[in-house]
């Protein structure tokens, strides 16, 4: 038992020192995540205290010397401990927790704001995310771009298995369930990049079902939205690449103004997006080429067949073109 106390402290220090991270619930970047982080720290402090006191009491009781208690004393001690520790302590703790937790939950669900929330539909595929903005008529893949300080209403859809939409730095998660549309209110209070991930186990590619969240200022967001509504112009040097793309890839992948495929992720902004395994890293022609040569085994057989049909020079061409597709 003597080992535990330093362990608890060590982990505490570890927590305070290393809470940051692109996907850390302890580095909140929005009101919902803020509240949850506060709930956590409050509970952590209180429960650590409870645990230490309990352990201390036990160790003390184990070491106590002297005569064992007499029968009538024992009776009194017993009821004191059981009523005090077994009834009153948990009842009070529960009352406090519920008094804090229930309103907090209510607030998180509604996330009141004077702005009308921006609706974004999140579609979970196996195993990538598609986000569409019904008001603006935009669709992106693997990247969720939102304006700062604006309430967002995520509407979650899936037509396959159950997934969960989760951006820890913004707030809690919600399951995406076939046949239902669940909604989640989120809001970001600072601009920048963060990371989201599917939290409900969804099969082989579960670990890679990540997405990047890009929080822009409101004006930047408006500009971004506008850009997303324009067709992509293909420079003359990339015309051959586009031709190859049409033969091998366009059935599934769309690129705004170039192809209108369905089933696979939209590639219009691919060069601004995280590489599947490495967030904060952009796709480059080298990485795309590598990927085309040995696609990740979790991709379906069609993708693998299509990429294996590409010659080295075709891969190079396509990669060079895709690298220019920024948002």
């Amino acid at each position: 038992m003597r080992w535990c106390t330093p362990l608890v402290w060590l982990s505490t220090l570890g927590l305070i020192g290393g809470c940051s991270g692109p996907q850390s619930a302890l580095e909140p970047a929005g009101p919902a995540a803020d509240i949850i982080a506060w709930l956590w720290w409050g509970m952590f402090a209180f429960f650590t205290l409870v645990l230490l006191v309990m352990t201390g009491l036990w160790l003390y009781a184990m070491q106590r010397r002297g005569e064992p208690a007499k029968a009538e004393d024992a009776e009194r001690i017993t009821s004191r401990w059981i009523i005090g520790g077994g009834l009153i302590l948990p009842l009070i703790s529960i009352a406090i927790l519920l008094a804090a937790g229930i309103p907090a939950g209510q607030y998180l669900i509604t996330l009141p704001s004077d702005k009308t929330p921006l609706r974004i539909d999140a579609h979970a595929h196996r195993w990538w995310w598609e986000f569409s903005y019904p008001d603006a008529g935009i669709t992106t893949a693997s990247q969720l771009t939102i304006p700062v300080n604006t309430p967002i209403a995520i509407h979650g859809h899936t037509d396959n298995v159950i997934h969960a939409f989760w951006v820890p730095r913004l707030g809690g998660k919600i399951d995406l369930i076939p046949g239902r549309v669940n909604t989640l209110r989120l809001q970001a209070s600072q601009t920048g990049l963060m990371r989201g991930q599917c939290a409900e186990f969804c099969g082989t590619g579960h670990a890679h079902m990540v997405f990047q969240v890009q929080v822009l200022s409101e004006s930047d967001f408006a500009a971004w939205q506008q850009r997303q509504q324009q067709a992509i112009r293909v420079a003359a040097e990339h015309e051959p690449a586009v031709q190859t793309f049409h033969t091998h890839c366009a059935q599934c992948h769309s690129v705004r103004g170039v192809s209108n495929g369905s089933g696979g992720p939209d590639l219009s902004g691919i060069a601004s997006r995280p590489l599947m395994l490495l967030p904060h890293q952009r796709h480059t022609s080298t990485s795309i080429e590598q990927w085309l040569q040995t696609p990740h085994p979790r991709f379906d057989s069609e993708t693998r067949a299509a990429t294996s049909a590409l010659t080295p020079s075709a891969r190079e061409r396509i990669a060079a073109w895709l690298e220019t597709l920024t948002e």
Partner: peptide, 14 residues
């Protein structure tokens, strides 16, 4: 009582 009391503060169907 503990189970039912949340109905004092929460809206039913959200």
């Amino acid at each position: 009582l503990l189970t039912g009391l949340p109905a004092l503060v929460l809206i039913p169907c959200v």
